[in-house]
Design a protein around this nucleic acid. Structure first.
Length: 398
DNA sequence: AAGGAGGGCAACCGCATGTAC
DNA sequence: TGTACATGCGGTTGCCCTCCT
């Protein structure tokens, strides 16, 4: 292989290969003394025959004092998979969610371990979709569901109930949103301005009390379709106290701005969705970048940065687990009191849904429950929730 | 015990982006 | 505005260790 140096050190005599303990010591001493403001000057200051780039890499990946050593925990693995599902091979971004881990470490772990695990589970590590319908399930409907997953690109929005509920103080029946969107292609999902959503699923879970929970106290990105969501759910002006785009408090001008595509990454405030006393804001990310709802932890940050939502999601799931337990308890009590609502012959979930649909004037006759179940489960949204959706009532929101 | 295969991991390479001039 | 340089990032390489035959 040609021995050529980096741009930054092509004129220097540079050493390559593994670092010796002596070199490490020199580098540590140098950075302790001078810092690493300019990596190109570090080799000279440290007395090393390495290029600045190599010094930087050695420091970041190995010598940095805040590095966590040892194998990855199950939680770290979960975070990597979850963030990778969103960001793909953006290791530096992924590593930001794992304190003490480097992008190189995460990348190596992914390539050597996680990738294989996912493939063994029949999951495509690139798309996080099931690889082949023939590997999953035996029922034809389930296979059809898997085929649907393979033929389309399903993107699940994280349940927003904790945010939603805590700021709306909704009365029963209170809704937990789980939107499922279907895109003809991954590119379409990422790039299109038009969102070819074919369906939304709204699962309905009563929530006893608004939680005191505060989602990180910063920004939450809202999809452009969230406005549609608000409108579709009769969250009109009166419900949306006001909606601010670039400082505007006029709903029509906000819509106009959103439609014009001029929003870009500029923060907007869905003040309607938040407690006025809250310091939580919402941020619009263009649909060309992402069409889903994510919480973020930084002000005005990019969507990539916003994936700190994974941390939030952990909290959300904890809250939702609590909700779920409360709901199950409440439902059990209700069942004891009123057997009529869910009769002995009504254990089939479809019947439950249909009974619900009659309340909501919604037609579920063509609803593919197994498809939705398998889709949701395959995406891991309910990892910390029940393995069955039997105890969840689902509303169909086209 | 020796050698080959495979995996894990540290380090490098090349490209993209940012910044100073 | 263009150029040079610095930095950051993802992909890739290759060394070393372990396991298996």
């Amino acid at each position: 292989m040609q021995q050529m140096g980096h741009h930054c050190c092509s004129k220097q005599k540079v050493k390559r290969g593994l670092w010796s303990p002596e070199e490490d010591e020199k580098l540590i001493r140098c950075i302790a003394t001078h810092g690493h403001g300019c990596w190109s000057s570090v080799p000279k200051l440290a007395g090393l025959e390495r290029c600045g780039k190599s010094c930087r890499l050695r420091w970041i990946n190995y010598l940095r004092p805040d590095l966590k050593r040892g194998s990855f925990s199950a939680q770290e693995e979960r975070i990597i998979i979850d963030v990778h599902r969103i960001l793909g091979n953006r290791w530096a971004q992924i590593a930001k969610h794992l304190p003490g881990r480097t992008d190189n470490e995460v990348k190596n772990f992914w390539n050597s371990c996680i990738k294989k695990k996912l493939m063994a589970q029949g999951i495509d590590p690139k798309t996080h979709n099931l690889i082949s319908s023939s590997t999953s399930g035996s029922a034809s409907s389930y296979n059809n569901a898997c085929n649907n997953i393979n033929n389309h690109h399903i993107y699940l929005q994280q349940p927003t109930s904790s945010i939603y509920h805590s700021h709306h103080q909704l009365n029963s029946p209170q809704k937990m949103m789980v939107m499922v969107r279907d895109y003809p292609s991954m590119d379409m999902m990422k790039n299109t301005q038009e969102i070819p959503a074919t369906f939304n699923v709204t699962s309905v879970l009563p929530v006893q009390q608004p939680r005191p929970y505060r989602p990180l106290s910063d920004l939450v990105s809202i999809p452009s379709t969230n406005l549609d969501y608000c409108q579709n759910n009769n969250l009109t002006n009166s419900n949306i106290n006001y909606l601010s785009v670039n400082g505007s408090t006029n709903l029509e001008s906000c819509v106009s701005l959103m439609d014009s595509g001029n929003i870009g990454h500029k923060p907007i405030s869905y003040s309607s969705l938040v407690d006025p006393s809250s310091d939580i804001g919402f941020e619009q990310f263009s649909s060309s970048e992402e069409n889903c709802l994510w919480a973020s932890s930084g002000k005005g940050e990019s969507f990539e940065e916003a994936t700190v939502a994974l941390q939030l999601t952990q909290q959300l799931q904890d809250c939702e687990e609590q909700d779920k337990q409360n709901y199950q308890k409440q439902r059990q009590e209700q069942e004891n009191v009123n057997v009529k609502d869910i009769s002995a012959g009504d254990t089939d979930r479809r019947d439950q849904i249909n009974s619900l649909s009659s309340l909501n004037n919604t037609n579920f006759s063509n609803f593919d429950f197994e498809f939705i179940d398998s889709t949701i489960m395959s995406c891991g949204i309910y990892n910390n929730m029940s393995s069955s959706m039997d105890d969840q009532l689902i509303a169909w929101d086209c």
